[in-house]
Simulated assay, not measured.
Amino acid sequence: MTEQLVTPAVTYRDPKTATAWLAEAFGFTVTMAIEGPPDQPAASHYEMDAPGGGRIMIGGTWSEWTRSPADVDGANTQAVHVRLAANLDEHCATARAAGAQIEAEPADQFFGDRTYRAADLEGHVWTFAVHVRDVSRAEAEEIIGIRIDSPEWE
């Protein structure tokens, strides 16, 4: 098992339903399930592997400082970005069929990825990406008209 250096924790009103939906819509796989008591679904904890790598944690609204976007008029204070190995357009079609709200249709981006953005059953925003071509920093800067500072991007 590869150690995850960063693992987003995503809060849902109904984490068990969210876990099943994330598997169906986005292709995540459950790697851990701790079921809370029936009268305390927020005490449940799940971990899921993302297609292509990475992990997320799913939990309930167990504290005053954790809320689902469904609890705060749809507001998001973060979004989760998932890099896929391939088949972005098919992934989007599967998500749409499962009820995801497609916020941005699949499109090629200036930095060389093809992406789409979707909101899940409680309003969390997810961006999915597939790398489609290598782009130099100079080419990206020309496309967007802004200087990019990045020691890792040639």
Rank of each mutant, 00 (worst) to 15 (best):
A79Q: 13
R133N: 12
G112A: 03
C92T: 04
C92M: 08
G112Y: 01
G112P: 13
A85W: 07
A79W: 10
E152Y: 14
C92S: 09
Q40S: 10
P151V: 09
E141V: 02
W62Q: 09
P15W: 02
A70C: 11
P37K: 11
N87F: 11
A100L: 06
M1R: 02
T17S: 13
T31E: 03
L88H: 02
A9W: 15
H124S: 03
N76Y: 04
R83K: 15
G74L: 01
H45I: 13
L84S: 02
P151S: 09
E139A: 08
V10Y: 06
H124Q: 00
G54Y: 09
T31F: 03
V132F: 00
R55N: 10
V10R: 05
D113V: 10
I148Y: 04
P15Q: 03
C92R: 06
H45C: 11
D71I: 02
Q40F: 10
P51Q: 10
P151H: 09
E47Q: 14
I102F: 08
T115M: 10
D73Q: 04
E103N: 12
G53Q: 01
I146T: 04
E139Y: 05
A107H: 11
T127R: 12
Q78F: 14
I58M: 07
P38R: 03
G74C: 03
T31M: 10
D108T: 05
T127A: 13
V130M: 13
T29A: 14
A129L: 07
T61A: 07
T11S: 12
G99A: 00
T7W: 12
R83P: 09
A75I: 07
H124L: 03
V125G: 00
I58V: 15
R133D: 10
G123M: 03
G53W: 12
A93N: 07
A93V: 03
V125A: 04
A118C: 07
A104G: 04
G59E: 08
W126M: 05
D39L: 00
Q101H: 15
Q109T: 04
Q101G: 14
T29K: 09
A50P: 15
D108W: 03
P106Y: 01
V135E: 06
G123T: 05
R114E: 02
K16G: 13
A23D: 14
H124R: 02
T66R: 04
V125E: 04
M48Q: 14
P106D: 05
G99W: 08
I56G: 00
A33W: 09
F28I: 13
T19W: 06
G52R: 06
P106Q: 04
G123H: 02
E141P: 03
T11M: 07
A43N: 05
A119T: 03
A100R: 02
I102K: 04
E35K: 11
T77G: 08
A95H: 03
V10L: 13
D49I: 11
A20S: 14
R117Q: 11
V30A: 15
I58R: 00
T66F: 09
E3K: 09
W62V: 06
R13C: 13
